[in-house]
């Protein structure tokens, strides 16, 4: 990202937003430097060495009216431009492509209308895209600085945002609402490609190939934000090769070992802070006893047995 990228045109909102920025900053700099200069001039000119006796002036109603009315007009103009640049962000064109955003601690999934799931947001050039924002846990906020858009993903609330990407390229997607331990790592890319390329990408997907049920349940409960399948150490231990392995755990401050059998894996879901794997923080995971049905927990355990 180069310096500020004012008026870069990466999305259809950049111009309206940057116009409001330029207007407000322009007026602000004028007043900041103007008033500061006048103040410094007064301090110099009316320093006691140059002006030993002050002239008593109680005030002036004319001046009070002037410096109430003029700033009032100026801020109303600012309000108008801010509103104008923003109002279009709430009016989604009817032909917009809808992508469902599934946010969770601490990652994004993008689900397309044909069921395709992606870790990055692929969008076609010059086409309206509507993002339906959902969260599986706490509040997140989807932020694409280059597009000047941001909207919170609030659990239980159907928030949305939209944009038309106007420049090909790859842009940072960041989480702007604080969401815990790995908040600053909750990143993805918005990848803008020509429409044909987008359609080809979208079609490269077989809806018949379904993920195992256990994996789907884990995804829906945001397990994968903290536990990897490939051995990578995230916030919690990886699931790789977990079944039957010997685990060093800390129970009530004492280190001991257990074998990860079915029973252990169920306990780790329903009472996760009882036996904490050595090297990991307690209390970061809540009990899923009331959240995931017993039958679904069995599906998860069945799936975890297959991760080698």
């Amino acid at each position: 990202m180069t310096i500020l990228q004012i008026f870069s045109g990466a999305s259809n909102f950049v111009e309206g937003v940057d116009t409001a920025f330029v207007l407000i900053f322009g007026v602000s700099f004028f007043f900041l430097f103007g008033i500061t200069a006048v103040m410094i001039y007064f301090i110099y000119k009316y320093h006691k060495s140059r002006n030993p006796v002050a002239t008593q002036i109680e005030g002036s109603n004319t001046l009070e009216v002037i410096w109430t009315v003029i700033p009032l007009i100026i801020v109303l103009v600012m309000f108008y431009y801010g509103y104008k640049g923003y109002a279009v962000m709430r009016e989604v064109p009817e032909d917009a492509i809808t992508v469902k955003v599934i946010s969770y601690m601490w990652d994004w999934d993008f689900e397309y209308e044909n069921g395709k799931l992606s870790k990055d947001l692929y969008v076609p050039l010059n086409k309206a895209v509507k993002l339906e924002l959902t969260s599986l846990d706490v509040i997140h906020s989807l932020y694409i600085p280059a597009f000047r858009v941001k909207e919170d993903a609030v659990p239980g609330v159907a928030n949305y945002m939209w944009f038309i990407a106007q420049l090909e390229g790859s842009y940072d997607i960041l989480c702007a609402e604080y969401c815990g331990l790995r908040h600053s790592y909750m990143e993805a890319q918005a990848i803008v490609v020509p429409e044909e390329e987008y359609l080809a990408w979208l079609a490269d997907f077989d809806p018949e190939v379904k993920d195992p049920k256990g994996l789907e349940i884990m995804r829906a409960n945001a397990c994968m934000g903290c536990h990897s399948l490939d051995g990578a150490k995230l916030v919690g231990p990886s699931f790789k090769g977990i079944f039957g392995s010997e685990r060093t755990v800390i129970v009530d401050g004492k280190t001991t070992t257990v074998v990860a059998d079915e029973d252990y894996m169920k306990r780790a879901i329903t009472d996760p802070n009882k036996e904490v794997v050595a090297g990991f923080q307690p209390n970061l995971m809540q009990s899923y006893k009331k959240i995931i049905a017993e039958e679904d927990i069995n599906h998860i355990v069945d799936y975890l047995k297959t991760i080698e």
Partner: peptide, 14 residues
């Protein structure tokens, strides 16, 4: 003022 204005706040909020 930048934060009170809708269009600009959406960008710099949080």
């Amino acid at each position: 003022l930048v934060l009170g204005s809708l269009a600009t706040d959406v960008h710099v909020h949080d």
